[in-house]
Design a protein around this nucleic acid. Structure first.
Length: 865
RNA sequence: GGGGAUGUGGCGGAACUGGUAGACGCGCGGGUCUCAAAAACCCGUUACCUCGCGGUAGUGUGGGUUCGAUUCCCACCAUCCCCACCA
């Protein structure tokens, strides 16, 4: 063992030992408990960044801990390898996207191996390989057969930069998820869709079961996104043409006697008919035209002012028989519900605003239960409560019912009379999965002029991407590749054409971690029996940005796989941790804009010496140049130091600010551990438990308390920061003990026993966080077995127990004194000790003791008057 | 507008189910060692008053519950995130 800590020398050496011993390679073993620890797979952009390092350091710490605790730990890594950057590289540098991608993968894999994460590399997958994406195609065909995949002409989100359509989830607030400055435009296109709505109820309801294992905000975001709303559809006949109906959706059928209008979206088919048949007024035509011209963002940006025009038609309220004017207005949306509503101004904010603006009547039909306000009192503000506080008035035979009763009874009434029915609507839509890109999974269908859409026979999968695509084209490279497109129909044998869309890359990541379970299977995506052993994932770790993207898709896909008979469960992830971002302050120079940390010298710009403005602490990003390169840090300090810093500086779910001094602190700590182990490593043999000095007993107590605390902090809370703090405390105790001995030769056998126990426990417990130095020190202590495959230390309650306790004493809840008592002292003895204490007596003085509250082993509060 | 989260020293953060607020680390100050410096080791570090013993205040703000509140309840303020004319 060397005297000084040189990370570069030991890290590679220990990585080789692990690789040779295959300690991270696992197979199914029904006799052992499994633990599946998963980190979100990266896109192979070319370089690992600090966000990755943090994510994988968290997962690695947990994996090591569970492995040392006897679990059969599956800890894999792979590449989400399809997507736009490869295509952009192909266009820009005339490269091949597959070559570009595989070069990046090689570079990043080498980086991950240098950091020494405990992956089973035999299970590595890349989603751009035919061995992988063939199963995407297989899934599509299974889904097609079950009606879960379909094709329809639809208005889709289109990003002009990506030059492709996007799912709703990828068009956040009207902007492309990859180009935050690029508004999404709407486009008519025939597309492939996955029938998410079949699973909407289940996707929502099962979120309740994830409570406790998933962060509350992710659950809230998913609930929000799925957006279930229960109500009813009601048909209003058009006056004078009773065979024609307008179907409206409402969650408040109880307010229907208060409707003053029916309002349809400007895109509603009724409007189209009116325009087509020449019945539309000029005002209506120009209004509709204007609405179609302005984009979604412009509509929202215009301050959301409500605008509408009457259509000239009237509709009959099926409950009251009233004829209501039919309007069209900008705030009624096509694509949600039926694209038509009834307006009830007295009980809806929007309808109230609209009625005021256009001078429509505002009849009230609900009032506060028990109020003696007259039923025809003018409405000052809409009354929208949907609970028992509202009672129906002005509603014929339904008067007197509470709102919830009325909703139920009036819906039933509508069903009986045949003009309505209960209806549940969702905000979530079917998933548009076609992309007009070339670097993705080809959609395995053939368009035959005679037979229509025909799936590629399963024994002809995969449909592979041609290697010689031409990316320097205005159009779609796949569609222009004649030998790819032109084929024969598997059904009739006639000439036919392949589908030229590719799949959304979120398909790839929807099921990849099941493939890790059985990565080389060439008959199925995975063997259901093998998956049944490893899955579901016990702990998943990744960024919050996937809360409503990947994490909804993968829950959906799991349910589909269950229905295909591949799985026996529908929720893929037991526990989810959304780790915080890695942040750094930005620097800005007037002349040279964003500056990287090493372009700032003494607060001045390196290039022009102008003073630099320090900006906000933000997520590390290339564009703002506030990044720290993991490779540089690891070269300077070693992988262990970088990991230790990241795990110690903040709890995993919080944002982490990079701090050079704190990194040095982490490095200093490891050197400090090294020195004390070096000092004793060859002097701890022949130690016996024997009669221990008080100091040795105290050290043993600290050791066992630390084992208890660290185990709890990792396993039950994933609070690595406090676990590491506990290890630092133990280290300080070891130093104090070492100092108290003055000289190595003073140590008795039992002193050395206590020291050995403390030092060996410390080294073992460092293994999850800083595996290389721990492994090296373990060897230095004379152990031949591999530490990261050795058992976690166990603590003894008896040794962890304190002999004496220092009990705080309060007088009327304020801190007054401390008394030392035996740990076993009874409540009565404790109370007696407190009341006999001179300081306590003095503080009580002449006051009378009203009562004494004794919290065993914790505190005594004397209440005086 | 609806929903979710966060708020503790100079800084990152501790405080388990209501029980000694500030663990651990960074930074800062002091000491030991040294010709000197670095490193290392040791001590101190919420604020205010006090030479010291000690005292007072203190976990965004204002209330409440309790013997006792960073922790529970109510209202408010600030910051961040998600959804948003969704009927």
């Amino acid at each position: 063992m060397k005297e000084k800590y040189f990370p570069a020398e030991i890290e590679e050496k220990q990585q080789q030992r692990w690789a040779e011993a295959k300690v991270f390679e696992v197979t199914e073993d029904p006799a052992r408990k499994k633990f599946y620890c998963l980190e979100m797979l990266p896109y192979p952009s070319g370089r690992i960044h600090m966000g990755h390092v943090r994510n994988y350091s968290i997962g690695d710490a947990l994996s090591h801990y569970q492995r040392m605790n006897g679990f059969n730990v599956l800890h894999p890594m792979g590449w989400d390898a399809f997507g736009m950057p490869a295509e952009n590289a192909a266009i820009k540098h005339n490269a091949r996207p597959d070559q570009w991608t595989f070069e990046n993968i090689a570079a990043m894999r080498a980086q991950l191996k240098r950091i020494g994460f405990s992956y089973d590399w035999r299970r590595e997958i890349a989603s751009c390989t035919p061995e992988y994406y063939r199963w995407n195609q297989w899934f599509f065909i299974q889904m097609w057969r079950r009606g879960l995949l379909y094709r329809k002409n639809a208005t889709v989100n289109w990003c002009v930069k990506c030059n492709t359509s996007l799912a709703n989830e990828q068009a956040e607030g009207g902007f492309c998820w990859r180009h935050e400055d690029t508004p999404v435009v709407q486009m008519e296109l025939e597309q492939w869709f996955i029938r998410v709505t079949n699973y909407a109820d289940e996707l929502l309801d099962e979120l309740d079961n994830l409570e406790g294992g998933w962060p509350e905000r992710v659950l809230a975001m998913q609930r929000n996104w799925i957006g279930r709303s229960q109500g009813a559809e009601v048909e209003f006949a058009i006056a004078g043409n009773e065979s024609e109906k307008i179907r409206i959706f409402t969650t408040r059928i109880d307010t229907i006697y208060g409707a003053n209008a029916v309002i349809v979206a400007p895109e509603h088919e009724l409007i189209e008919e009116l325009i087509a048949s020449g019945q539309a007024s000029d005002g209506l035509k120009s209004f509709v035209e204007k609405q179609s011209e302005i984009s979604r963002e412009e509509r929202l940006a215009e301050g959301a002012e409500k605008q509408g025009v009457p259509t000239g038609l009237f509709a009959v309220n099926p409950f009251s028989g009233d004829e209501l004017p039919v309007w069209t207005a900008n705030f009624v949306l096509t694509g949600y519900g039926t694209g038509a509503i009834m307006a009830v101004p007295a009980h809806d904010e929007r309808d109230f605003e609209f009625a005021r603006k256009y001078g429509l009547p505002i009849p009230r039909v609900i009032k506060v239960a028990g109020s003696d306000e007259p039923d025809d009192a003018p409405v000052e503000a809409p009354f929208t409560a949907k609970d028992e506080s509202g009672v129906l008035i002005n509603s014929a035979q339904f008067n007197g019912l509470t709102v919830p009763e009325a909703i139920k009874i009036m819906t039933e009434y509508a069903v009986q009379r045949g003009f309505g029915r209960p209806q549940t609507n969702f905000r979530i839509r079917d998933w548009g999965v076609s992309r007009q890109r070339a670097w993705g999974t080809p959609i395995p269908f053939i368009h035959c002029p005679k037979c229509g859409i025909v799936p590629v026979p399963e024994d002809q999968l995969p449909v592979t991407l041609p290697a010689d695509l031409n990316f320097n084209t205005q159009g779609a490279p796949l569609a222009e590749h004649a030998s790819f497109v032109n084929t024969t129909c598997p059904n009739c044998g006639g000439a036919a054409q392949r589908d030229t869309d590719t799949m959304d890359t979120f398909v790839d990541s929807s099921w990849y971690y099941f493939r890790y379970c059985d990565p080389h299977n060439d008959e199925l995506p995975f063997d259901p029996e093998i998956a049944a052993y490893w899955a579901p994932v016990d702990q998943y770790i990744g960024g919050i940005e996937h809360a409503v993207l990947h994490l909804i898709y993968t829950r959906l896909w799991t349910k589909i796989m269950r229905d295909l008979g591949l799985l026996s469960f529908g929720e893929p992830v037991r526990k989810l941790l959304t780790q915080g971002m890695v942040c750094l302050a930005t620097n800005r120079c007037e002349e040279h804009e964003w500056l990287s940390p090493n372009e700032v010298i003494d607060g001045k710009c390196k290039f022009c010496e102008r003073p630099v403005t320090i900006g906000r602490v933000e997520k590390m990003s290339k564009s703002k140049k506030n990044t720290i390169d993991p490779d540089e840090m690891i070269r300077e300090f070693g992988s262990d130091t970088v990991r230790l810093f990241m795990l110690f500086a903040a709890p995993p779910e919080k944002d982490l600010e990079w701090d050079d001094s704190a990194v040095e602190g982490a490095s200093r700590y490891l050197a400090r551990v090294w020195r004390i182990v070096y000092k004793w490593h060859d002097k701890l043999s022949n130690a016996a438990e024997g009669e221990a000095s008080p100091a040795a007993r105290a050290l043993r107590r600290k050791t066992h308390q630390t084992i208890r605390r660290v185990s709890h902090d990792i396993a039950d809370r994933m609070n690595f920061n406090t676990a590491i703090a506990a290890l630092m405390e133990l280290t300080n105790e070891i130093y104090a003990f070492d100092n108290s001995l003055k000289d190595v030769s003073n140590a008795t056998s039992s002193d050395r026993f206590a020291l050995r126990e403390a030092i060996e426990s410390l080294v073992k417990m460092l293994a999850p966080f800083t595996p290389h130095i721990a492994e090296e020190l373990w060897q230095g202590l004379g152990h031949n077995e591999i530490l990261v495959a050795s058992p976690w230390p166990q603590f003894s309650e008896a040794l962890a127990k304190e002999d004496e306790l220092e009990i705080p004493v309060q007088i009327n809840g304020k801190m007054a004194a401390r008394v030392v008592v035996a740990a076993e002292a009874s409540n009565a003895a404790l109370e007696q000790a407190v009341l006999n204490d001179d300081r306590v007596k003095a503080k009580i003085g002449g006051k009378q003791i009203a009562k004494v509250i004794v919290v065993p082993k914790r505190l005594v509060n004397v209440v005086v008057k």
